[in-house]
Each structure stands twice: as C-alpha cells, then as structure tokens.
Design a binder for these strands. Sequence first.
DNA 1: CTGAAAGCGCTTACAG
DNA 2: CTGAAAGCGCTTACAG
Lengths: 336, 336
Amino acid sequence: MKGISIKDIAKQAGVSPTTVSFVLNGKAKEKRISDQVSKKIQKIATRLKYKPNQLARGLRTGKTKTIGLIVEDIANNFFASLAKVMEDEADKYGYKVLYGSTEDNTEKAKGLLEVLKYRQVDGYIITPTKNLDKEIELLKTTGKPVVLMDRYFPHVSSHYVVVDNFQGTYDATSHLIQQGYRKIGIVTITSDQIQMKDRMDGYMAALKDHRIPFQKTLVKKLPFELDREHFTTEIKHFLTTVKGLDAVFFATNYLGICGIESLRSLGWQIGKKIGVISFDDHDLFRLHSPAITCVAQPIPAIGKNIINLLMQELNQPSTSPQQIVLAPELIIREST
Amino acid sequence: MKGISIKDIAKQAGVSPTTVSFVLNGKAKEKRISDQVSKKIQKIATRLKYKPNQLARGLRTGKTKTIGLIVEDIANNFFASLAKVMEDEADKYGYKVLYGSTEDNTEKAKGLLEVLKYRQVDGYIITPTKNLDKEIELLKTTGKPVVLMDRYFPHVSSHYVVVDNFQGTYDATSHLIQQGYRKIGIVTITSDQIQMKDRMDGYMAALKDHRIPFQKTLVKKLPFELDREHFTTEIKHFLTTVKGLDAVFFATNYLGICGIESLRSLGWQIGKKIGVISFDDHDLFRLHSPAITCVAQPIPAIGKNIINLLMQELNQPSTSPQQIVLAPELIIREST
DNA sequence: CTGAAAGCGCTTACAG
DNA sequence: CTGAAAGCGCTTACAG
C-alpha cells in the first residue's frame, strides 16, 4: 500500500532527503552535488521505482500538473474528439485533464469551476455558458491561466481559440446560393452567445452580398435544453410551415442530426427537394445517403492550439490576450 | 491568489484549527464542540467562502476523491457517452474523473496506470488491453478498488461491468437467419480479448443452433490499429471476394461505420443486396437510409453500475468480486 | 558539496 | 468541551 518516498531513498543512499530531492529534480549540477552521489541516488530511485507523490509536491509548490476542462457536452462528437486531442497533447507536457460538462447550464458551469478551483488545477480550458463572464473575470484575478474555447465574451479580454464562425456560415450560405437555392432557412439555437451570433451574421451577410432579402420567417431558433424528440418535432414544424423553402442550414451538429431525422420522417428527399448543410462534420453526415455538406472544424488544430497556448501561459504569462481564430472548411457533398 | 485556510477561520473565531476542522467535517457532535462555537465557525466559513484544499486533505488522508478512467478511445461515441454518464454519477458522490485513452495499446495503458497511480486516484475504472492482466493483478494488491469495463480477463478475479456479448451476437445472428439470410459474414477485430471472443462465439452458436455450417471464409479479422481507410479497403476486399455473401455482421461500432462506407463505395444496396447488423448503436445507424439494425448497449445502465460498484467498494470492499452482466438490446431496423 | 529545518493545509491521536 | 502537536511527502531558503 504505502508508496516509497524520498526518505526511503535517502536512507538507502545514506544522504539527506534534501539531496535526493535535488538530484531527482535535475538540480544536481546547479546544487553541485557530486556525480558519485548523484548517480547512486538515480540508481536507487529507479530500482525502487520511485514515483514522486504529486499531492505532496502540489501542496508544496502549488502546481498540480492538472488542467481543468469544461465543455458543453463530453458525449458530443465534437467535444469528445477535441478532448482526445487535448489529452494527448497535455500528456506530452506531463499534464492530466479533469473534465466536466455544463449542458450549457450556467449553474452547472459555476459548480464545475468551484470544484476545479479547490482541486487546485493549474489552468482552465473553458467552453463558457451564457452568463459566465463574471466568473471568468474573477478567475483571471487568481493568476491561473484560462483559455476559452468554441466561444468567448466580446467584452471580456481573455485568451481563446475558436473557429471563424462567421466565415463558415458565410461560405456555406454563399455555396447554397451559387447552387441556385433561394429560400434558405436556418435552424439555430436560442442563444446570444458569440459563436451563434457569428453564425447567424454570416448567414445574413451572405444573403445580403447576393442581394437576397432576409426574411425573419426563415430563421428558427430552438432552446438548447430540448431533447432530441422535441428538436425533431420543432424542426419538422418549421420545415412544413415555411412555404417554398428550398434549402436549410443547421447551425450545430446536433441540430443537423435532428434535422436529418426530421427530413427522413417527412420523407423529403435531401439534395433534391431540399438542400442541406450542417455546421460540424460527423460520421453521419459523411456516410448519409446522400452525403451531407458541412462546415467542418479543424479539430486537431483546435486542440493543439488550445494546449500550446495554455502551456505557454503556464510558463510565462503574456501581457496581452492571445486570440486564435482558425478557418473552418466547407466540405461539399451530395446534399447541396 | 492565496486561498483562505482553516487557520484563517480559526483566527477569526478565536479557536484552534483543530476545532475548525472538527466542525467543518461534521464531527462537532462527536467531538462535543459547543453549539455556540460550532455555529460561529460555520458562519465564518461560509462568509469567507472557505474551500478545503483537497491536496492537503489528500496528503493527510490518502483520499483524493478522484477516480481514474481508462478507456480505449474517448473520442469513440460509445466511450464518450459512457464517460458522460460516469462523470455525472461520480459527481453525486463528490468524485472527479481523470481520463485517458489506450488506443488498445498495452504500453499506453501501462503508462496511464502509472500516472494515475502516482496521482493517488482512489479507484480505477479500466477498459483493459490485451496483456494488462499482470498489471491488474498488481493493482489489486494496492488495496485500491478496480472495476473493469467492456471486457475482463477470465483468469483474473476482478470486479467488472460488461454486456452479454455472446447473447447480443447470438440474437443478431439468429435474427438474420430468421430473415432468410444464409451466408452470413462477420467482420471483427484480431483480438483474443473476451468481448470479441464472446461475440464470435455467439455468432457460431447461432449458426449451429440453426444447422447452418460454419465457414471460415466468412470470418474477417482486422487489426485494431488500422486507420479508417485501411479498414474500408479490407472490408471491401472481403465483401467482394466471398461468393454469395448475403448478410454481414460488424462486431464493433467503428467496423460498422467503415462497413457502411465500404458498402456505399461498392454501391451495394444495404437491406436488399446484403443484410447488415452492427454492434453498438450510433446516430449514423439510426439515421442511415436504410436504417441499420444493431445490438445496442445500455449505456446509462452500464455507467451507473460501474460507478455504484466502485463507490460500494470504496466504502467497504467486498470479499468476492462483483461481476455485472447487462443485457444488450437488438434494435431491428431496415437493413435486415 | 551537503543537510537541518521550515512549511504547504489539512487531520487526528492524545492530553487535559 | 477544546487545543498543542505530529505528520502526510515533498521543496527550498538558509547555513555551513
């Protein structure tokens, strides 16, 4: 049960724990420990398979080598894939990840933040919920680095890594228009968060640039909290009540999935009766018949950028916020 | 930066840290602290928003309230969904989850185990890789509870939560036979791990019970390490070389996904030219046209059982291993 | 070149 | 009814 400690090594080597600590932390040279002693300690340590107790170290140094990851929903393909990339990257630096899902619920997010705080994580990666701006501001005062992902608060100066949501939707909408679609609906989430706002703006800008008048009836906003069944019912209702709709853009992957479900149950032929694009890629979109055009986010790049940014901040905090905006990719398939 | 500590409260209340600790740990009655002092301390603690330093507590008590989760691939829908359920459940008990993916690579798994160990997790949830049996045995001697998931080692006595893989495949194969399919192929993973063996056995048993001779040429085993492209190439090759194949069973979700991709690129009509079933459910299977029949695992039940089992063992270790086998569900759709 | 000692923030056996 | 003290396993400023 008992692990072996620095003391055990010290005893066996006939030196003090101090010396052992110096050697094991690579400070032998700096502290001018003799090569002889140094090697002896190293040897004993590996023989005993010594593993430093991270708790003790953390208590003393204030560093836990742990990062807190708060996402909207770890079961969602986008966040899960990102979590994988980030875990891999963090591992290279010796960091582990503690995760939690907010369900886009601010109270849950606050709870997670609290837990991560008293678990002394070294840094935070956060997909913020609507009213989390105050908490983010507060967190910044603790001196622990915070990197926002997927979205951010325009009025809060912070590090973030996001995708160019405006451009993604703009390109998607323009593509639809070029394909001859004219009455293009958009199904999105009732949310004034920046990523949704940008997606909405991209849609409107594309319409405008192609001189297609914007119609309010073509926009359907749904609350995030709905379950799949209700999403589907709502989407079906929307699709059937708007006259002359010839294409639809789904602003998130789960809306796209529910959208396909809706279209299927209506018996509408995707790509024929109606053009379809979704934000985010997914196996379902790729392999659906017909395959669904989408705005794909560069997941590996996002994950790597987040971790790199966080590690940089952990080593030497920069004075100005680093804000990274990556380009999404329009993948054209059969549905448009 | 500095958090507030038990000492700060003690000072403000004019008592010793000991007393504060007693009160805050609900031992006021037991230690017969006066109501007056007790209340005063409570009040100060909430006013100061005191959060115990988990590191210090962990160092002292040896409990970190953290569990280590090792899965095959956190980006895989099955594991991601399970991770979500387990996170939620664990949270109810005040536990957080540290995760890692093995990619079914034993060396990676060993590395993860090591990291989790010196991070002093209280318990482990492990999806073991092939040769991890020694490590599991070793882990058991440390007295920390270990729950295996998705698979286990028949020769190692341990707690586990799995699905009845044999029955799942048996039912699926029987269903195919009842639908009139006779030349049923199976695409699985080159692995002698129990979950794959059981799935294979279920297939063979169903054939036998329906007096259909087993043919070795109908079995295709692929190494886990392949990427999607190679999986697809191999599956296409298999499908086209076996003469008269009229149905195929894919033994995992990613094989099913690649299978659909293969069938698509061959232009074969699923459900007409060939019957298809996959293990695990997935949005793609549900919404594909035609929808794909599958053997679905009860993810919420699996997750809850795992956490409950672990919590039980954390509170009072049982002498005999608890082994839970849940029933999978055959969801019949259009592909068969 | 090396070590004794303090301290990180808790918990708990012991004493009164 | 309450407190002084030890100790969990480290790191590090200080001393020699």
